[in-house]
Amino acid sequence: MDLAPILSDIEALCGAPLSARGAGSDTVLTVPPAKARAAVEFLKAKHGFNVLVDLTCVDYQGFGKGTQNVSPAPEGRRFKLVYRLMALDAGTGLIKARLALDSWVDGESVPATIKDLFPAADWLEREVWDMFGVRFADRPDVKRILMYPEFTGHPLRKDYPIKKRQPLIGPADASARERLSPADLRPRIVE
C-alpha cells in the first residue's frame, strides 16, 4: 500500500506538516498528542488499519547525555507514546501496511484513550500507566496491571532505580543477608 496519500490525509487532519521517518513498514509519523486519537480513528476508519499491534511508551529523560549529535526530546517533553498499527488483510493474511505514530507527551498530559477503538488498548494503556505513569483521559478505573497496588512509583521511568524494592512481605533489603556462594553449584541441604 502506498503510504503517501495516508500521510497527507493525516497532515490535513492535524492541520500541520508532520515529520515522517523511515520507509515502507518502518514508517513512523509524529503527531501532536491532542490529535493522536483522531489519527488512529481516522486510520482505522478510512484506511483499514484494523489491528493495534502495540501501544507503548519511551521515557526520554536524560536521553543523549554524553553523546554527540543525538537530539534530546523536543520541547522538554519527556515521554513518547508509540502507537503501532497494521492493516491486515483478513482473507489472505498478508499485511497491506504498517505504520507507527509517535506522540510526545509530558508527565502531566493526559492523552485520549483509544480503548473504545481497539479493545487491545485497554491493557496496553494500563501498562503504560503502571510502568511510566502516563495516564490516559476518560479512564477513571485505571489500575496497575503488572505491579501490585501497594507499589509506589513507575518502574520503567529512568529515574526509578532498578534495585529499589518495595516488598509486600520479607525484609526490605534482602541484599544484605548471607547469600549462597556462587561456587556452590551443587544441590545443597541446609541444616
Partner: peptide, 10 residues
C-alpha cells in the same frame, strides 16, 4: 481462519 503468519506476511 485468518492465515496471518509473520513468516509468510513479512
Amino acid at each position: 481462519g485468518v492465515p496471518y503468519d509473520v513468516r509468510r506476511a513479512e
